[in-house]
Design a protein around this nucleic acid. Structure first.
Lengths: 194, 194, 194, 194
DNA sequence: AATGAATGAGAATTCATTCAT
DNA sequence: CATGAATGAATTCTCATTCAT
């Protein structure tokens, strides 16, 4: 890869990182190319050098965020500790994302009708992988008799659903800290598996 | 109230019921007045006879859905049965809404940045009331020693969050039926309180 | 004329009197049928019982105001006093209209491009008659050697123009009273004829 | 100032010059963005590249015209000739504007209720300056005993009012020429000061 | 690589007008 | 007579997209 190509890639990611925040606050329709460009001190026109069109840009936002989250989760999966400990870490990681990277995170959890089906497919694929990591740990725990036998899919849905919801109400200022929430949620959610 | 006023109200509700579906599929920005009107075999202009502007129309969509959901939940609250039974019914009702009235339901769970704060307030107020019904039952159960002592707010959040998530994945065709899901969810979620 | 017809005429005038004010504040395009109706506690639709359309309504506003002003001026014209005295009275009357009936008055002085030429004509005709009254007095005064010989049309234009302008700046609260202005203007303007 | 900024300014002025004519023929409400754009062989959308919205565009029309008129008048104010000569020149300049730049001129004399008060203020300020130039000459003439003592404000109002009125009746084709009118008006109006 | 300028296809909104009741 | 309801054309405004420089 030539240096110039690397530069382009870096710039692309820079744009995506910034765009993620805006798209999340305003939604697909609400976010304007103008706004995305302005946040980067660029002009609208320049965005079209890097991305084919708006849909493409926003699609790549999703892809970027998802692959990052997946990578992080995968790391936990492979740690040589008990299933309960591993699931606990995954729960904390997920909550961390849900709270600290709220903007990016939203992209994972609702790809919506925004995309043409050809673009939607790889995103859903990634989501499936992400969910699979949880399934592996839960099933592993059940097999190892660490967890009681459960309906795998349903329990995973309860886990993810309840955690995804946190960002709807979490306020850094008042109430519990992120760490407290991580602990409490891990405790309660693990009760489902005991 | 005069007959004419009643007629207007009925028409308004008719419009809202139809609009809810569209707004939910396309989102606030994606739904157009044209489309909303067309679905009712009206013209754009007519909508403005009933609603001040787009924001007003969509705001009233939220208000309508919320008040209906609230009413239904309240009924369960007052039944003369054990707290566990009542909570079970409320869970089932909530899931029923989340699945069957998916469109309307979405409006309740993300009012977002769509609304001017003056309109947002009454919606949040209604949401608070809705959440309060769950709190009452949970606290009641704890006081009556039916449930173990829990962090009220957190548990309620886990309940609602996990249930709200159902609509993201539920597919009537394959897998479990609504009734099954209602039962399974109720079982699992009640484990948190035991 | 039947009683019912009289009633209609009365209602028409009532509408016109009210419309004049609105049209004057907002201009032809700015004034809406809605607003005109609302000021009379009627509905838009009802206006169309009395007037063919908006243009017709506003045209009749002009006609009404002009005919009233003309009638009043004519009275002065025929008083058995010196030309100077008569002109003085006419000046005062005109200023009175310009200040006190500002809204109505504006209609006289700028019929503009608002009207179709067929409607514009009678209005211009009336204006000509109004101007003619001033011409008669000035010419009469010149013939009677009360006034010096002047360019009739130009002087009349200076008179009317300067008086029409008063409403642009006159403020009842501060500065000179209406009566003072009437006196001062009469004094200055008569200097042109001496 | 960079070249590009200058270009924008030039284009802006080009648009304004064209818009002034249209706004004047049709008024604020009557003139459409479509029409203004078409006259410049542009599209509606482009106007919004240069101006925030219609109100902004029209506001800047006023500002442009006023500042031009003010500059011109100021030049006369400083000529080293008698007060009478200077006032005569100012009268002629004003009449020239009223006749030849009728469109632009109208904007000066009636800012109206069109503007939000925050925009209205600077316009009124400019008008005050314009009027002040006349006041200076009149007062100067009085002090220098060239003119008789007069009510400064009233006389200035008579001057401006009568001249502003010219455009209501002046027809290039028939009757007197512009130059004749300038002379006659100057003669008559100066009589007020003698 | 970036930008400034322009465009055109919608979108929301307004309002005169109509008409059945 | 009056009105409520509906309409549709006109108008303002937005924004993704293009392209010459």
């Amino acid at each position: 890869m030539k240096l110039s190509e690397k530069k382009v890639l870096k710039k692309k990611e820079e744009i995506l990182m910034s765009a993620v925040k805006i798209v999340n606050n305003k939604g697909y329709q609400g976010a304007t190319m103008e706004e995305i460009a302005a946040a980067l001190l660029m002009t609208k026109g320049s965005l079209y050098y890097y991305f084919k069109n708006k849909e493409d840009l926003i699609f790549q936002c999703h892809a970027l965020v998802l692959s990052k989250a997946n990578k992080e989760l995968l790391a936990h999966l492979e740690e040589p500790i008990s299933f309960e400990e591993r699931l606990r870490k995954m729960i904390k990681t997920h909550i961390h994302y849900a709270i600290e990277k709220k903007e990016s995170f939203n992209m994972i959890i609702k790809p919506k009708e925004t995309f043409s089906s050809e673009q939607l497919h790889p995103i859903l694929q990634q989501r499936k992988i992400y969910a699979g990591y949880f399934d592996q740990i839960i099933q592993g725990g059940v097999d190892a008799k660490e967890f009681v036998n459960v309906d795998l899919k349903i329990v995973r849905m309860i886990l993810l659903g309840s955690m995804n919801w946190i960002q709807q109400w979490y306020m850094p200022a008042g109430g519990k800290s992120k760490v407290e929430i991580q602990e409490i949620y891990a405790d309660y959610l693990l009760k489902l598996l005991k």
